[in-house]
Each structure stands twice: as C-alpha cells, then as structure tokens.
C-alpha cells in the first residue's frame, strides 16, 4: 500500500489516536470482562450449591450463601460412586489411548509420510473420512462384537476403540508433517547403515517430539471427555469413567441438587487441572495448527 506521509503528520495523528483510545479502551475492557464473567456464572452457581445442605437448599434457594460449610454432599457423591475407581478408570483409559494412539499414528504416518507407499493419498483420505463419521454409525456393531468377544463392559474395549479413532486424526496430522521431513537426515541415517526401524526411533522420533507431545495431550483430554461409547460399553461401577458415572446418576432420587452440584464439581476438577497444567501445550497446538 502506497502511503506517503510526512513524519510530522504521522506523529500528530498517532498522538490523537492514542488520546482517543484512552477513554474508549476502558469501556471495551469493561464490556469484554463482563462477558467473560457471564461465561463463568454457571461455575459460580455450582460452587455455591456444592457446599450447601439439602435442607438449606430447599429453604433458602439456589442463590443464598451456604449457612454452613457443608461437605457431606461431596462425601456422599465420592462414596456413592466410589469416585477413586472412576478416576482411575478415566486415567487408565485416557492414558493408554494417548500413548497407544500416538504410537499407531506414528507408525502409520511413517509408512505414509516417509515411506510414501502407493495409494497413500487414498489411504490418508480414508483416515480423514474416519474422523468425520458419527460414532452412531459404528456403535451397534462395536457393541455387538464386543459382547461376542467377551470384551463388553471392559476398559480394554474402550481403549482399543479410542486408540483407533484418535489415531485416525493423528495419522492425518503426522503424515502431513512427515511428508516435509528433511530428506538429508534420512539419507544421512541410511549412509550410516541405519535400517528403517532404527531410523524411525533414532532420527524421526526425536525430531517429532514437540508435535507428539501436543498429540498426546489432545488424545488424553479428548478421550477423557468422550461420552457415547463409554456410556454404551461400560455399564457397571467397576468400569465406568468420571463423566459416565455422573450422567448415570442423573435423575436418581439420591441426587438432590447439592449432591448433583458436588458431583459435578468433583467431575470437573480433573479437567480444570489438565487445562491449567497443559494450557501452554494446548495453546501451542492450536497456534501450530492454525499456521498455514
């Protein structure tokens, strides 16, 4: 853009602009802050009522300050669903899926991105398609075959299913990353006498580490938040995950409002912790993804 302007005019203009912004910028900040606070209101409601006794709730309503710091709701929910078991199930499933999913993605992508096997664009297209499928299109056969195979109501079934679903996305991502992998590095490894297997672990893997870390975190959180497949596949107290446990007690007569809120609070805490721990990784992943 050809803008010719003398320095003096430019400066004068900028000064005026800044002055103009000075008043307005606080108004904008206030408006956006109010909007952000509105986003957080549901959490405030939940916290307020998670520490209230049922009697307090029914006399004083959902907006009152708790008349005592009541933790029995939390304890009731914790014991009723055996929360540590649910937590462990979620960690086990999400953790296994994250590791296995990254591994399968890496192997697939090595063949597609570096090996350039024939028909790779079709294969990548297939993985892409798998990403879009609604899980309803898979769920009944999965449910039926899992029953036949004796895997129904096991965490293993859910781990296998999500390993494949997540690695469909991971394969697509890593295959495109690896197709731009520097050839010199591969040739140097080949000259040193490294086979394909050694090249994968000694040359490709170290170079991909940051991308794999992002994938690992995403797979973990996505699997943690999954609902339909765990809901269908996991039906008892010993196998259910944190979100499924809460949902299956919804509407139960033991779940009065304070217990519902206490249970929701307990179920949200791990996700909020991951968010805080992985915030940087998530932001990096999003930024890396948006770059073209």
């Amino acid at each position: 853009m050809a803008v010719t302007i003398t320095p003096a005019t430019g400066r004068a203009r900028r000064v005026r602009d800044r002055h103009h912004r000075g008043a307005g910028r606080w108004v904008v900040l206030a408006l956006v802050t109010v909007a952000a606070l509105v986003m957080l209101v549901p959490f405030a409601f939940m916290l307020l009522n998670a520490f209230k006794s049922p009697g307090d709730y029914s006399t004083n309503g959902p907006l009152s300050w708790p008349s005592e710091f009541y933790t029995k709701g939390l304890r009731t929910y914790w014991e009723q669903v055996d929360f540590p078991v649910k937590l462990w199930n979620s960690i086990l499933i999400s953790g296994s899926v994250a590791v296995a999913g990254v591994l399968v993605s890496l192997l697939n992508a090595y063949a597609l991105g570096i090996g350039r096997v024939r028909g790779r664009l079709w294969i990548i297209g297939l993985f892409l398609l798998a990403n879009m499928l609604p899980q309803e299109a898979l769920i009944y056969p999965l449910y039926h075959f899992a029953k036949e195979a004796g895997l129904y109501n096991t965490r293993l079934a859910v781990i296998i299913i999500f390993t494949v679903i997540q690695s469909a996305f991971g394969t697509y991502l890593l295959a495109s990353v690896l197709s731009t992998f520097p050839r010199q590095l591969l040739e140097a490894a080949a000259l040193d006498g490294a086979g394909k297997w050694r090249t994968l672990w000694r040359v490709v893997l170290p170079n991909l580490r940051p991308t794999l870390a992002v994938l690992l975190v995403f797979f973990f959180i996505w699997t943690w938040n999954e609902f339909l497949i765990p809901l269908v596949m996991l039906i008892d107290n010993q196998t259910q995950t944190v979100p499924v446990a809460l949902a299956s007690l919804q509407g139960d007569r033991l779940m009065d409002a304070p217990t519902t809120n206490a249970g929701s609070l307990l179920s949200l805490v791990p996700a909020i912790l991951f968010f805080l721990i992985f915030q940087r990784t998530l932001a990096r992943g999003i930024t890396a993804g948006a770059e073209k």
Binding site: N131, Y172, S176, V214, W222, G285, G289
Partner: peptide, 12 residues
C-alpha cells in the same frame, strides 16, 4: 475432526 482444535498443515 469435531471439537478438535488443531488443523493439520496440508500434505506437501
């Protein structure tokens, strides 16, 4: 994929 916040770069 839905609810996924990354966009893979295009295969070169």
């Amino acid at each position: 994929a839905p609810e996924r916040a990354t966009t893979p770069p295009p295969p070169a």
